[in-house]
Amino acid sequence: MKRLYLLLTVLILFSILSATDVFESQRENMVNNQIKARGISHRATMEAMQNVPRHRFVPSMQRRFAYSDRPLPIGHGQTISQPYIVAYMTEIVDPQSEYRVLEIGTGSGYQAAVLAEIVDSVYTIEIIPELAETAAGVLKSLEYDNVKVKAADGYYGWEEHAPFDAIVVTAAAEYIPPPLVEQLKDGGKMVIPVGSPFRTQNLMLITKRGDDIVSRSLFPVRFVPFTRSE
């Protein structure tokens, strides 16, 4: 009987370790094939994508697809973005270690975790309380102490911690809330993805330069630039 228990324990431990190994190797493949191969060169971003266990941020039913090259549903009509989009959005705001970053639309919490690997502090707002709670729980379990999660209407930003060096808006709408523009530092960058949940094709970068606010449409596409054949 004792031998049987010992055997079972070894088997369970082996399974856990195997699973962990599998996720790690999937993560490495993701970074190499989906991120590096598509031109992401920001070292800190790549390291962050390598470190953050994406599979912890998706529902258990989706775990085997966690490192696939696509977005995944996380409930409440929301999705966790495709890994490349997360990497691109991180790189494009050029995060530095001293940065204070605001995220609107916590969702799964994955983007916040990636940012938290790089910057000093991340403030993330999620309007759906259940999602905010789940994300906060996962972030806490992974010891991302520099991430603060709030369940609130992201329209108002997070004034008490403004201004922000960068703002990542994942829950985009037909307008960019004026309070967010106000809370962006001069020279700061705001990034907003544009597109249907499963088809994000376009990213918008907003830069504040004094009184002027400049927007730039970026096209990661699939991700070959869409050019006409000659």
């Binding site: 309007i127 329209y155 709408a173 037909e174 004026p178 523009v181 606010i213």
Partner: peptide, 18 residues
């Protein structure tokens, strides 16, 4: 819903309420 607003393509210079 208190969070429902609509201002399509709002200018980034706009500083009022929606």
């Amino acid at each position: 819903a208190p969070a429902l607003r609509y201002a399509p393509g709002l200018s980034l210079q706009y500083r009022g309420d929606i």
